[in-house]
């Protein structure tokens, strides 16, 4: 593919309760395999995907946290979280399973502008 469009995936869904979070990462990994630059933004309940200490063994489902920690292997290094959404859930960067860039809410608009295509999950 000659056209390397940059993609921003906005995640608003918590993991496990629905498969949106999983679908989002599957799309992110696929686009990365096709060498398209992918950034992930976690807002609202989406920040809950990033929590460390996930133990989904009893649910017999894949550990979301493990999928997130695999992202750098696919050259997905740009993970953004808004400070206000972390605060809303009483979370701090120590609560997160992967390194993220913490941004102010007003920067979401710039992130959308900076990418060619925006997908939401």
């Amino acid at each position: 593919m000659s056209d390397k469009k940059s993609i921003l995936i906005i995640n608003q869904s918590a993991p496990y309760g629905s498969n949106k979070a999983r679908e989002s990462l599957d799309v992110a990994l696929t686009c990365a395999i096709f060498e398209m630059p992918v950034s992930l933004l976690f807002i609202g309940d989406g920040v809950l995907q990033l929590l460390n200490g996930q133990q989904p063994e009893a649910l017999q489902t894949k550990k979301h946290e493990a999928m997130l920690t695999a992202l750098p292997m696919y050259d997905i290094d740009c993970l953004y979280v808004t400070s206000s959404d972390l605060k809303q859930h009483g979370l701090q960067s120590e609560d997160l399973a992967v390194p993220v860039k913490i941004v102010e809410q007003k920067q979401i608009a710039s992130l959308i502008q900076q990418h060619d295509t925006v997908l939401t999950y």
Partner: peptide
Amino acid sequence: GLGQLAEAIALSDRVITFG
């Protein structure tokens, strides 16, 4: 596969999600 979605994003002027 999902590669068809990646290709569609690469080759289209607009991608519109109906959720």
